[in-house]
Design a protein around this nucleic acid. Structure first.
Lengths: 202, 202
DNA sequence: ACCTGAACACCGTTCAAGT
DNA sequence: ACCTGAACACCGTTCAAGT
């Protein structure tokens, strides 16, 4: 509960969240204790509870930060103004996930699973995934407009969602089983889905 | 630790696992206590520990059972002998995930996230995902052989992996955000990946 | 031969007491 | 105005005692 100044509070929240990410990368969400985070950021347990309502509230804040970083990175890679095809955009999305140094895909996996059981976290995640998807959609808009006349907006949205789904499947596999690299996956997926006419799936 | 007959043990393990799945569907893996499972199957806490080494061991057993069910279902849907294209096979995979009554995709999500932090569970999951993938690979073999001369085996494997990745991304989205249904996703993905030549991704 | 439940160490959360 | 850490209820795990 808020018993601290708002300015002080914001700084403390960032400090705690950064420590939390470090511990989460090592242990996963349910094997991370408040005591461990408290030790990592050199604040008492009580200080954490002065800045976050509870563990779930801290989790929501951390999840938001992870997406902030990811969206910033994506936008910096797609603001060139070139017309990107879906495959090219997927390549950007997937290789940025393979980097392995940043926020760590496994932490995102932790949040997905927690969200499937925590409705408040699910709302936060849906919002952030929506922001990321909107960013993808913007990057795909020139391609989509060139494909159809007038229906570019609808096509860009649906294609962005399909890209998100594929990148999320890639993330899960990459971090659990290390299957394929980004280019192999794209080449195979393109070949598998390419030669078939969309109309005859039924 | 085993202090019970092997036959009795097997029956008890199935009984406990079935109760565990019911609780997991409600609560998720880390909010499910042994006490809750014990209440659900009407056995004491001690009885559970007589049949499983610990909570992680029970989790590995449950994960294996979930995949057994899924593989059986997939094989019953693809043994018609028809030549299935990747898109048709993906449709089978995705609609079977949408059924929503069976093992519940959200439970699978729980296991993925736990696995990213528990090496033993990861080994079990990799093995089971490998079995499911092999089943997909077998179903795709006729299509793959018709595509190339001689390289059907390699193509079937890589395509199976791509199908697994897409179905896993679909599962995560479906259970977290309810995006798109299976046909919409396939139509959009096919359109997005189709018109582009595999060679020009770079 | 199998089962029970009290006991222990640990985790999330609170709050009286400090500075 | 902010911080600490002992205290409480609960969870995973064990094991002496029951039948």
């Amino acid at each position: 509960m808020p018993r601290v100044t708002d300015a002080h509070r914001q700084a403390r929240r960032e400090q705690i969240a950064e420590a939390a990410v470090r511990v989460l990368m090592r242990n996963g969400i349910s094997d991370t204790s408040i005591a461990q985070i408290s030790a990592e950021c050199r604040l008492s347990i009580g200080a954490i509870y002065a800045n976050f309502e509870n563990k779930a509230d801290l989790a929501r804040f951390v999840a938001t930060r992870l997406f902030d970083w990811r969206i910033t990175e994506l936008e910096s890679r797609t603001d060139g103004g070139a017309v990107l095809t879906p495959v090219e955009l997927l390549a950007v999305l997937l290789t940025s996930l393979s980097d392995a140094n940043r926020p760590a895909p496994s932490v995102i996996l932790q949040f997905w699973s927690k969200a499937s059981v925590d409705a408040d976290l699910r709302v936060v995640l849906a919002e952030q995934v929506g922001r990321l998807c909107a960013s993808v959609e913007r990057a795909l808009r020139p391609w989509a407009d060139a494909q159809t006349d007038g229906a570019g907006e609808e096509l860009a949205l649906r294609t962005a969602q399909a890209c998100m789904i594929m990148s999320q499947g890639f993330l899960a596999n990459r971090c659990l089983f290390g299957w394929l690299d980004a280019e192999d996956f794209l080449a195979t997926a393109t070949h598998a889905l390419g030669p078939v006419d969309a109309a005859d799936l039924r």
